[in-house]
């Protein structure tokens, strides 16, 4: 396995009396796609914002280790972080309309990223912007540079966001639900583009999604988050073949897949809702919804190693699901 480009150990983020991320750890290797999957409120977006140093004021961030390409991000101040953002690490968001400035043309926004980090003339920056718009599959890039964001469709806006993120040749792209606001046919086009860019540019991608279908199709590695913790992490094929945390198993049962459940039969579902976790909370965050919960789940939860870089956070031993040891 190649060296970790992004290494996060024991990340904690708290807002007031809510613990949004509780000791999450994951690494993204150079050139790999790592998906963080989970439901709303599980801490996946907050983790990404914490890495970028973009948390809202009032958030408290701490970590045992937070490094990007060997640099300690915890020691960097806002000004030093802003030198990295948009340059060596870039981020794209769910709704490109809210992350593009409606008052400036596509070209001026893209050029600003480049001149700010790399200097040079605006003309050179616009040339690069046009080349990248072509690279992300936009026809007539010269014309698009002069347009405003509202003149573009949702799919085009997301392509513009991706092209803008690529302006300074980043090593890491963080994509937060990049296709959630798009139609399914456009979604597959954007995902194909991301996969292709990764292959051609050797980009590492940290992709945040709630959609297990997307995870299965483009991730090399998956981390499942629940209530602020990474409850399971594994190479993609392993996770789908041998989901070991009760939450991962429940989540997979909930996803409607054509032909999986007979018409008229009930879908699998997880009772209850995601709890709000206070900083003093201890034990397994899933225990109130878990069918395998036991009194020990209120204590410290062990990290189980199932081999092949597959880990999960549960009292149940590796292989419990296969051997029926879930008593």
């Amino acid at each position: 396995m190649s060296e970790a480009l992004l290494d996060i150990q024991g990340l904690r983020v708290e807002f007031g009396d809510t613990a949004a991320v509780r000791g999450a750890s994951f690494t993204v290797a150079r050139g790999e796609t790592h998906c963080i999957v989970g439901e709303s409120g599980c801490g996946k977006s907050v983790s990404a914002l914490a890495v970028m140093g973009l948390l809202a004021r009032g958030a408290r961030r701490s970590a045992d280790c937070l490094t990007f390409a060997g640099k300690d991000l915890l020691a960097r101040n806002e000004q030093q972080m802003s030198l990295l953002r948009g340059d060596r690490m870039a981020m794209i968001f769910q709704e490109p309309m809210t992350s593009l400035n409606p008052a400036y043309t596509v070209g001026s926004q893209m050029a600003e990223v480049f001149t700010r980090h790399r200097g040079g003339s605006r003309h050179a920056a616009l040339d690069r912007a046009a080349a990248l718009l072509g690279r992300v599959g936009i026809t007539a890039p010269g014309m698009r540079l002069g347009q405003f964001p509202h003149q573009l469709s949702g799919g085009l806006r997301q392509r513009v966001m991706i092209a803008m993120a690529l302006m300074c040749d980043p090593e890491l792209l963080i994509a937060d639900e990049p296709t959630t606001a798009l139609d399914v046919t456009v979604q597959v086009q954007i995902l194909r583009l991301l996969a292709e860019l990764q292959r051609d540019l050797g980009l590492a991608i940290l992709l945040i999604t709630h959609d297990l279908g997307i995870v299965a199709r483009i991730a090399d590695r998956v981390s499942v988050m629940y209530a602020g913790e990474v409850v399971e992490s594994a190479p993609t094929a392993t996770l789908f073949a041998d989901p070991s945390h009760p939450y991962t198993r429940g989540l997979l049962d909930c996803v409607p897949v054509p032909g999986k459940v007979k018409p008229g039969d009930a879908l699998g579902s997880i009772p209850g809702t995601v709890p709000r976790i206070r900083p003093s909370f201890a034990g397994c965050g899933f225990r109130d919804r878990c069918t395998h919960a036991a009194p020990v789940c209120a204590g410290t939860v062990p990290r189980q190693h199932a081999g092949n870089a597959h880990e999960f956070l549960c009292r149940l031993p590796p292989g419990w699901a296969a051997t029926g040891q879930a008593a």
């Binding site: 046919t185 597959v188 995902l191 299965a216 199709r217 483009i218 094929a237 789908f240 997979l252």
Partner: peptide, 24 residues
Amino acid sequence: ALLASVLTPEPGLGVPDVGLGDVL
């Protein structure tokens, strides 16, 4: 094309090319 765009949680299949082009 719509059916081909459904991403089922099956690893290893990749993202399909539904061939719809970019005319909206």
